[in-house]
Design a protein around this nucleic acid. Structure first.
Lengths: 111, 111
DNA sequence: TGAACGTGCAACTCTTGGGTTGCGCTAGGG
DNA sequence: CCCTAGCGCAACCCAAGAGTTGCACGTTCA
């Protein structure tokens, strides 16, 4: 998977509000199943599963099987990648964007 | 347009590689027409026009009519908005990961 | 062992998105 | 004044995305 594919997957994962909502839940829960996620959101479990697959293939979610459950956890790494792309691109968009870099400096996450 | 719509539009604008390529050309040219963009890329002018409309509605492009041409320019503002979303979200994720990390390291958590 | 629960797989619908072609209109430049 | 360059609109194609329902399979545990 080249870098363009990866950026494609990341931004497209972030472009859906249901998926961003799932990301938020993942972030607050530290480990959660698709069924748990589905209760409390207005879509079916299967829809959630598909979103989780999209998030996984963008690198945002990792899975761990525990008995008959599959628990999903957040991986923040792709967010850093997105931040780096924006920062790099913004830098190239010349000094109109100079201030962007400081905004993204040591957040999100430490590597 | 609420903030979610805006984030939707921005990330979905960034999620297509042709559109990212157009953004790059916009950044380097400081004012360019759809026809100019189409020469040198492997899609039709109409496809470029559609991409420019998507970029416009995300706030990335502004148009200015000059005679019979329509010249497009880059507006970097949405990139800042994306950066801010990522930064905010990343901060919230880091909070949780930070708590988790200090728990795992058996250190007294701050906060 | 058997019922119940959580998943996985598949088929299906509807909408959106990226792309194309064709054509008509208008503004400029010889 | 006319021809051409550049644009806008509309119709269309095809693939992917978001979502649904139905059912089969494996795990748990009473």
């Amino acid at each position: 998977m080249n870098s363009d594919d990866s950026i494609d997957a990341i931004f497209s994962a972030l472009s859906d509000r249901t998926r961003r909502q799932v990301l938020g839940r993942l972030a607050r829960a530290d480990s959660v199943t698709a069924t748990e996620l589905a209760t409390g959101m207005d879509v079916s479990r299967q829809a959630i599963v598909k979103h989780l697959q999209a998030l996984s293939s963008a690198g945002f979610a990792t899975t761990e099987r525990s008995g008959r459950e599959v628990r999903y956890s957040l991986d923040p790494a792709p967010l850093r990648e997105a931040a780096r792309w924006i920062s790099d691109e913004g830098a190239r968009w010349d000094d109109r964007l100079g201030r962007l870099r400081s905004l993204l400096q040591d957040r999100p996450g430490r590597t």
